[in-house]
């Protein structure tokens, strides 16, 4: 029967996943069938997707991408690979969202930030000591390429202002607002909704401090605007930004982006 094994269509004699593993690999290899890692043998059907991974062995380049994406159902992977997402602001939200979208294999990312990495960023943003002083665009791209070399990453080290919103973002499916300052958030959302009629915006408001995780939610206040956060807890004097709630909010944004890319528009 013909099935896809490690990214390639192959004809095998075996009728079960473990028979296929015996044919092609070793008894200790990990077997992932249609997105799920199995520890009991399962029958195979035509057009199944099987991944067989030998632990501790660096796979060939042409097999690596299918192994990395083995936990996704195959149709999901194809949609994500075609996805185009722009991230405006690479701080606690944007850097962590970019890492998540890279892990799930979103095919085209645009990273936009004018700033450099500073020590006060490290409490919540996805950067390391070695990145201090580097432009965030460059420091983040370097990490993303190490996580998933099979996606295209564009960077723009500029400040986003009303006049460059169209030029920067008009060719993307989704614009992720990940700024820190509330006036910059409002400017990008207003301008984006007015000038980019095809683009959906996933924005954030309210994730400072250490109030309950459960206050952070995703809402859809306007037709093409998805908003994540508790809507109340702004950063201010005496209320800092900390990794857990910022990452919870980043997770909400990344999951909403994932849902939109696979065609789910409800929150």
């Amino acid at each position: 029967m013909q099935i896809e094994i490690n990214g390639k269509k192959q004809i095998i004699a075996g009728k079960t996943a473990f028979e296929a593993r015996a044919e092609l690999g070793h008894e200790t290899d990990i077997v992932i069938l249609n997105g799920f890692q199995i520890d009991r043998d399962c029958p195979l059907a035509e057009s199944d997707t099987l991944t067989i991974i030998r632990k501790g062995v660096m796979p060939a380049q042409e097999e690596l991408e299918s192994m990395m994406m083995a936990r996704h159902t195959p149709e999901v992977h194809k949609k994500l690979k075609q996805g185009r997402v722009a991230i405006a602001g690479l701080g606690g939200l944007g850097s962590n969202i970019a890492v998540m979208l890279t892990r799930i294999g979103v095919g085209h990312l645009l990273l936009v930030d004018f700033d450099i990495v500073e020590p006060s960023n490290l409490n919540r943003q996805s950067y390391y000591i070695r990145h201090l002083g580097m432009p965030k665009t460059q420091a983040l791209k370097e990490q993303l390429q190490e996580i998933n070399p099979f996606i295209q990453i564009e960077t723009r080290t500029v400040r986003v202002e009303e006049h460059n919103v169209t030029e920067l973002f008009s060719t993307y499916d989704i614009l992720c607002e990940a700024f820190d300052k509330p006036d910059a958030k409002a400017m990008l959302v207003s301008t984006g909704l007015a000038k980019l009629p095809e683009v959906k915006i996933v924005a954030a408001s309210g994730m400072a401090g250490f109030a309950s995780s459960n206050l952070i939610r995703t809402s859809k206040p306007l037709e093409r605007l998805y908003l994540c956060g508790d809507l109340e807890n702004g950063a201010g004097i005496g209320t800092g930004l900390m990794a857990p709630r910022v990452q919870i909010c980043a997770g909400h944004q990344a999951n909403m982006i994932l849902r939109l890319l696979i065609g789910r528009e409800d929150i």
Binding site: D183, A204, G229, L231, A235
Partner: peptide, 10 residues
Amino acid sequence: LEIVRFVGGG
């Protein structure tokens, strides 16, 4: 009218 208010942090 729909008014969306943003607070700081990111």
